[in-house]
Design a protein around this nucleic acid. Structure first.
Lengths: 124, 124
DNA sequence: GCGCTAATGATAGTGTATTCTCAATAGCGC
DNA sequence: GCGCTATTGAGAATACACTATCATTAGCGC
């Protein structure tokens, strides 16, 4: 059966305490505050099982490294800053996307990515 | 200066005659109808210069291989069939996305990807 | 047609993300 | 505490997309 380990707890906590999607390297760095010699492979293993059980999911924006985020946040989208290259959460959803699907196509999900500059970079 | 070659013409024609984004391997296969021993490196070289000059662009949907499409189609989005894994064009655009961006963020572009099943797979 | 040189084809190489390997470690039921 | 075995850590290995290399081919201006 599956065991509860310090490593896995540290990884889950890192993800769920972050307010944005994290790269595996960022997860590793944050979780190492709790478990100093945590390995990257363990991060990947934990992320994989979290995705399988639905408690995390992948956020992959072209041109950026893959990031992972906790599923405890509801349905939302992302904003990619072209200047600092970070990814931010965006609450809300355009809605009514079914009308865009071609006739006969069955829609069961969607992703929206906004591009531009975040507050900090827009001000600079 | 840049020369007009049979290879490049075949690649450009393959892309612009397709009604959906193509992977480099698909471009290779289609263009080989015209230039039998075309190489993959040439496809990548042609795609790169087409992107630089703005006549093609990348369509990268997470979980699928990168695809390329001709820019002669206007602004539009994509539909990814979860069954046959192909990518289709979607005319139209949700619009009014600026209201989703957090305050202070400057929006200058967006991508929308719809997921579901295409007509053929929905019927099967 | 000639010559210059950009473009090509085949394949090796690169970069990045992720998984595998395997000996050592450590949950958890008893 | 004991033992079983899932999990871990470190680095090697893999997968994939793409680029570099280099000898050969072939546009294009004259």
């Amino acid at each position: 059966m599956e065991r509860r380990t310090r490593q896995r707890s540290a990884i889950q906590e890192a993800l769920s305490s972050a307010e944005r999607p994290l790269t595996p390297a960022e997860v590793l760095e944050m979780a190492q505050a709790k478990v100093p010699n945590l390995g990257l492979a363990t991060v990947y293993r934990a992320l994989r099982s979290m995705i399988e059980e639905g408690s995390a999911h992948l956020v992959d924006i072209p041109g950026t490294p893959p990031r992972y985020e906790s599923s405890h946040l509801g349905h939302h989208h992302h904003f990619h800053c072209r200047t600092c290259l970070q990814v931010f959460e965006v609450d809300g959803c355009p809605g009514n996307l079914a009308r865009l699907a071609p006739p006969g196509f069955v829609l069961d999900g969607h992703e929206v990515v906004l591009y531009g500059r975040c507050t900090r970079c827009a001000a600079a």
